[in-house]
Amino acid sequence: MRVYPAVFALGLRRYSAYRAATFAGLLTNCVFGVINALVLLALFAVRPQINGYDSGDAVTQVFVAQSLIAAVAVMGPPLDLDERVRSGAVATDLLRPVSLTAWWLFDDLGRAAFQLLFRSVPTFGVGALLFDLRLPDCALRWTAVLASFALAVVVSFGLRYLYALSGFWLLDTRGVWAVAGLLGPVAAGMLLPLPLFPAAIGEVLRLLPWASMVQVPADVLLGKDTLPGGGVPGGLAVQAAWAVVLLALGAWTATRATRRVVVQGG
């Protein structure tokens, strides 16, 4: 199947057109990274250890979170699919002889690849220049980090694809996004690292899919033993499990949705 690489390339190229916007977003990520890092440094100066995190861990987590914001799109943007469901244009997508799920997955992977290259890498680089970040010390662990980031992107797609498909029933996904855009960043560990939450809440949040987009990748990078299963393999396993479950759920929902095809305005 040559079509999916083409869809991937399309998604990648579409985003590369917004150069000023990419730079502006990068600036915002760096500003927030610095502010959050300084707040946590002040906190850890008073309390050197909180639930297994020290100041270096916290600052690294902050920059992983800022680096991944654009790639995993916790606060949006939604997939273009949302708008196509609303306008009824999705009908033409359904006529294509390819899987709806795979089509949008590769389109979104293209977008994420662009964001990883031009938002995540520079943001993390700025963080590493300004602060003393905890970095993995061997190639194997870096490979694990790459795998973890890639899984974070797939999990993110899985969630946003489900949000988009809810549009077949709700007709408008803006309400879903209003809720998701608020709860997502908190549950992902983007507002504050999850170890700072009261232990019970933190433990529950870690197991939800949102944590697989920020907190778990950060802990994989830090090589934390607080990960589910006590280490990096467990963390990757949780992410992979969520990726499979969400994609399967998405594919199943998509067939249900296309069967009822309430095409708006068509």
Binding site: Y18, A20, A21, F23, A24, G25, L27, T28, C30, V31, F32, I35, N36, L38, V39, A42
Partner: peptide
């Protein structure tokens, strides 16, 4: 730059995030 809305956000929302805490914790330079 018409598509640089996010750059403004780093000053507006960033400014809000910054001023939500006592400034002294950011250090004298900031």
């Amino acid at each position: 730059a018409t598509d640089a809305r996010e750059a403004a956000n780093s000053l507006t929302y960033g400014g809000q995030a910054l001023t939500e805490y006592p400034l002294a914790l950011y250090g004298r330079g900031i």
